[in-house]
Design a binder for these strands. Structure first.
Lengths: 231, 231
DNA sequence: TGAAAATCTTAAAGCTTTCTTAAGAATAAG
DNA sequence: CTTATTCTTAAGAAAGCTTTAAGATTTTCA
């Protein structure tokens, strides 16, 4: 069973840290963000299955964030708020949140609500699970449709090329040696397969880069390996 | 759009009647039950999309009812309770409820929570609502009438062809391997049935595509599988 | 029930795309 | 300037998709 990831977003670090402990205890993966902007970025770069979102944050308030998240991904959002007014709850729910919890909250109740959302989310089969769009600048990876887009335009990749991009995008910014890439994508030990990978890299660049000679996304780190740069 | 039905179950007739008014105002169909047994019966006899369930009822308490409902149908359950203790909430949610509201509650907040559950329930569609029309560009699937239309014109598909289209339309944009398609549509393990699916794909294309050589809807993703493209 | 029609399955051939390999060119680092 | 590393190109081999056709099976309707 694959691990489910929760993004916790609150400007109060104490709350974030506390929630992290509870969530990890329930065996969820935890990602942390302290502003709405950070939340949106985390969403683009990682596979996330549920969001706990504070509604009062600097930079971007939770409601706006909720709307933007809804536009991009259809994952459960639970709003956590200091406002316990009914009108705020109603507004939050109508803006697309799936649940609304007021501070101070009982962490165990919150965990039960997280579980409840996850249950429904995963009930529809793991089919819906491996979806979501990962982004870095103009480069987008749509794992549901097995599609890669650059500045909105669909790029046609072969299965191997696609596999390499998925691996690098799922580990955005990390550098991997050719051997590591081969082992991950081919799922077998790399024995003198250096050049094979190089050729694939070459062809991926030809497809996704404006100027393959000076790659914007698929970067080489001399003597070490390759990565897709984080934007 | 089809009407969504809510089953309201509470032994307090005043509450049931009040909720009925609010729900009808939101354009939901309303069914009423005053005991757990009646609720289960209503569930068996009518198409119901969400349940509002009081937790303290004669004959059968709400928690037991929740469990029995969950066993039969996978529809959203919102528990309404006089108990506002956190432990009760947590118990209710863990027993399979999707939300928990304490009395006295703000009816508008409750409506917002109903809407929120319905939104998710109908968004993922597939398993939940067995009717309704799915669309992608000019391609329409009317599950109620078991009909497929292209630019308004009815396309006559065979049962197997229809099954494949339903599966792919219910997971619009997702790519599935031939083996996955076979297993989902035939409901049995695919053993060397690769070509069977391919032939059906071929014939579906002949019927729904303007130019089967360059399919607009039923796309192949080389080395991976097929999908119906999202427009 | 029996014949006709419709649908499904299987096999095989042809076509297209993708992968790998190898060898030489280009580039960065010291 | 030398060496190690990466990039590029091309071509044959392998893998995957499409199409056709014919026989088997199921459904329909008289």
């Amino acid at each position: 069973m694959e691990r489910l990831n929760v993004l916790v977003c609150d400007d109060d670090t104490a709350i974030v840290d506390a929630l992290e402990i509870y969530l990890k205890h329930e065996n969820y993966g935890v990602l942390k963000a302290y502003t709405g902007a950070q939340a949106l970025q985390a969403l683009a770069e990682h596979e996330i299955h549920l969001i706990l979102l504070d509604i009062m944050m600097p930079e971007m308030d939770g409601l706006s964030a909720t709307i933007r998240i809804r536009e991009e991904r259809n994952i459960p959002i639970i709003i956590i708020s200091a406002k316990s007014e009914d009108t705020d709850k109603i507004a939050g729910l109508n803006f697309g949140a799936d649940d609304y919890v007021s501070k101070p909250f009982n962490p165990l109740e919150l965990m039960a609500r997280v579980k409840s959302q996850m249950r429904r989310y995963t009930a529809l089969g793991s089919i819906a699970l491996k979806s979501g769009i990962l982004k870095s600048g103009g480069l987008e990876l749509d794992r549901a449709g097995k599609e890669v887009r650059v500045d909105g335009e669909i790029i046609r990749l072969t299965p191997t090329e696609y596999g390499i991009v998925v691996f690098l995008m799922e580990n955005l910014g990390h550098v991997f040696s050719i051997a590591q890439i081969y082992e991950q994508v081919w799922n077998e030990p790399s024995y003198a397969a250096e050049n094979t990978v190089a050729v694939h890299i070459r062809r991926i660049r030809e497809k996704i880069e404006i100027n393959p000679r000076e790659p914007k996304y698929l970067k080489v780190v001399w003597g070490i390996g390759y990565k897709i740069k984080k934007y």
